Amino acid sequence: MHDLVTLLKFSGVTEKIRNHFSTEWSIVEKWNPEIRYKPIGSHARQTAQDMLTSTETLVNAFK
């Protein structure tokens, strides 16, 4: 399993994320790769959209 908090610590951008993207990080850090094995419709569409939007924001912040 991926530990996003540990990966963030190793990334060297912890302070930037926490200071400028805390809302997005609070959504992304809840990600669990095991969700892919749950039936379609197990999670609200808005939850998935929020995860995607927050992930895109974080990725684009470090391009």
Rank of each mutant, 00 (worst) to 15 (best):
P33V: 12
I27H: 04
P33K: 07
D50K: 09
E56A: 08
S42M: 05
T23Y: 05
R18N: 12
S54W: 03
W31L: 10
Q49T: 05
H43L: 10
P39E: 14
W31D: 12
L52R: 02
A61H: 10
I40S: 08
K38C: 15
D50I: 03
E15F: 01
Q46C: 06
T53Q: 12
L8S: 11
Q46D: 06
T23E: 14
E56F: 08
T23F: 14
A44P: 08
S22D: 11
L58S: 09
T6P: 03
I35L: 15
V28Q: 03
K38Q: 14
E56N: 07
N32P: 10
A48T: 06
T55F: 09
S22K: 13
V13W: 04
P39R: 13
K9D: 15
Q46N: 06
N32W: 03
L8F: 01
I35T: 11
T6M: 15
T53S: 07
P39F: 05
E34P: 01
I40V: 13
Q46K: 08
T53I: 09
S11H: 02
P39M: 12
G41E: 04
I40P: 04
V5R: 15
S42H: 06
W25C: 05
T57R: 07
F21A: 06
Q49K: 04
L7T: 03
L58H: 01
S26N: 12
R18Q: 12
Q46A: 07
K30A: 03
G12S: 11
E56V: 09
A44W: 02
V59W: 08
N19I: 00
A48K: 07
T53C: 00
D50Q: 10
H43P: 00
E56K: 05
V13I: 15
T55K: 02
V5P: 02
W31I: 12
E56P: 06
F10E: 15
I27V: 08
D50N: 14
V13Y: 14
T53H: 10
S11Q: 07
V59M: 14
R45N: 01
I35P: 03
R18E: 15
E29R: 13
P33N: 09
V59P: 04
R36P: 01
Q49D: 07
I27K: 02
Y37P: 00
